[in-house]
Amino acid sequence: MEFQVLDIPVPEGTNVIIGRSHFIKTVEDLYETMVTSCPSAKFGIAFCEASGKRLIRYEGNDKDLTKQAIETCNIISSGHVFVIYLKDSWPINVLNAIKSVQEVTSIYVATSNPVKIAVADMGESRLVLGFSDGFKPLGVEKEEDKKERKELLRRFGYKL
């Protein structure tokens, strides 16, 4: 068994959602979920099939994001992992809908930050050990930081 830490690309202006599912219909169901829960979003989806042909299945409405999702599935190479890259939207707009897809078993990460994944490579399969999202904290927010956070949420339209 070989332990590895892999860098997951998150291109500027995009978000990535990585999770686990259990069935070949995942890509189609996730596609339908994305277009119905946030029609303005551009996205690409890829899914690592764990048995049978063991292909990376894919769908999307944006060629570049779909290509990025396929490349990231190749990096992770763990059965039943799915990757969604999106732009013109935020994960908060689609996460609950994704979590309600029947075959989705978990979400590992949803972010625009740098991502690393720890895996154990066992030859024919890979075990996902965990993800890191962004960086370590540099301190505790002060009153001015709190004010800035609240203003940002209002600028994004998430608070009145």
Rank of each mutant, 00 (worst) to 15 (best):
residue 1 M to G: 08
residue 1 M to A: 13
residue 3 F to I: 12
residue 4 Q to M: 07
residue 5 V to K: 14
residue 6 L to P: 06
residue 6 L to K: 02
residue 7 D to T: 12
residue 8 I to P: 10
residue 8 I to Q: 02
residue 10 V to W: 00
residue 10 V to F: 03
residue 10 V to L: 02
residue 11 P to S: 13
residue 12 E to T: 07
residue 13 G to L: 03
residue 14 T to I: 12
residue 14 T to H: 06
residue 16 V to S: 00
residue 16 V to A: 04
residue 17 I to D: 04
residue 18 I to P: 02
residue 18 I to K: 05
residue 19 G to I: 01
residue 20 R to I: 07
residue 20 R to L: 13
residue 20 R to G: 15
residue 23 F to T: 11
residue 25 K to P: 06
residue 28 E to N: 11
residue 30 L to S: 05
residue 32 E to Q: 13
residue 32 E to I: 05
residue 34 M to Q: 01
residue 35 V to I: 13
residue 35 V to K: 09
residue 35 V to D: 07
residue 36 T to I: 05
residue 36 T to P: 03
residue 39 P to D: 14
residue 41 A to M: 03
residue 41 A to D: 02
residue 41 A to P: 00
residue 43 F to D: 00
residue 46 A to G: 03
residue 49 E to C: 08
residue 49 E to A: 07
residue 49 E to S: 10
residue 50 A to D: 14
residue 50 A to V: 00
residue 50 A to R: 12
residue 50 A to Q: 10
residue 54 R to C: 13
residue 56 I to F: 14
residue 56 I to N: 12
residue 61 N to Y: 06
residue 62 D to Q: 03
residue 63 K to V: 09
residue 63 K to Y: 15
residue 64 D to I: 07
residue 64 D to Q: 09
residue 65 L to Y: 00
residue 66 T to W: 00
residue 68 Q to M: 15
residue 69 A to T: 02
residue 69 A to R: 01
residue 69 A to I: 00
residue 70 I to P: 00
residue 71 E to F: 07
residue 72 T to M: 01
residue 72 T to Q: 05
residue 73 C to A: 10
residue 74 N to K: 15
residue 75 I to L: 04
residue 75 I to T: 05
residue 76 I to K: 15
residue 77 S to Q: 07
residue 79 G to N: 08
residue 80 H to R: 14
residue 80 H to I: 05
residue 81 V to S: 09
residue 85 Y to G: 02
residue 85 Y to F: 15
residue 86 L to A: 08
residue 87 K to A: 15
residue 87 K to H: 10
residue 89 S to P: 14
residue 90 W to P: 04
residue 90 W to M: 13
residue 96 N to Y: 11
residue 96 N to L: 15
residue 96 N to T: 09
residue 97 A to D: 14
residue 98 I to E: 08
residue 102 Q to N: 13
residue 104 V to T: 08
residue 106 S to N: 12
residue 107 I to Q: 02
residue 107 I to V: 15
residue 108 Y to K: 05
residue 108 Y to L: 06
residue 109 V to G: 01
residue 111 T to A: 13
residue 113 N to L: 13
residue 114 P to I: 00
residue 115 V to N: 10
residue 116 K to L: 13
residue 117 I to G: 04
residue 117 I to Q: 13
residue 117 I to E: 03
residue 118 A to S: 11
residue 118 A to T: 03
residue 119 V to L: 02
residue 119 V to G: 00
residue 120 A to V: 03
residue 121 D to A: 09
residue 121 D to N: 15
residue 122 M to A: 11
residue 123 G to M: 10
residue 124 E to K: 02
residue 124 E to N: 10
residue 125 S to K: 11
residue 126 R to E: 10
residue 126 R to D: 12
residue 128 V to R: 10
residue 130 G to Q: 06
residue 131 F to C: 01
residue 131 F to V: 05
residue 132 S to F: 07
residue 134 G to N: 11
residue 134 G to V: 06
residue 135 F to T: 06
residue 135 F to W: 14
residue 136 K to A: 15
residue 141 E to P: 03
residue 141 E to M: 14
residue 142 K to V: 08
residue 144 E to F: 08
residue 144 E to S: 10
residue 148 E to G: 11
residue 148 E to D: 13
residue 149 R to S: 09
residue 149 R to W: 09
residue 150 K to W: 04
residue 150 K to V: 12
residue 153 L to K: 05
residue 154 R to W: 12
residue 154 R to D: 13
residue 155 R to Y: 08
residue 155 R to Q: 07
residue 156 F to P: 00
residue 158 Y to L: 14
residue 159 K to M: 14
residue 160 L to A: 15
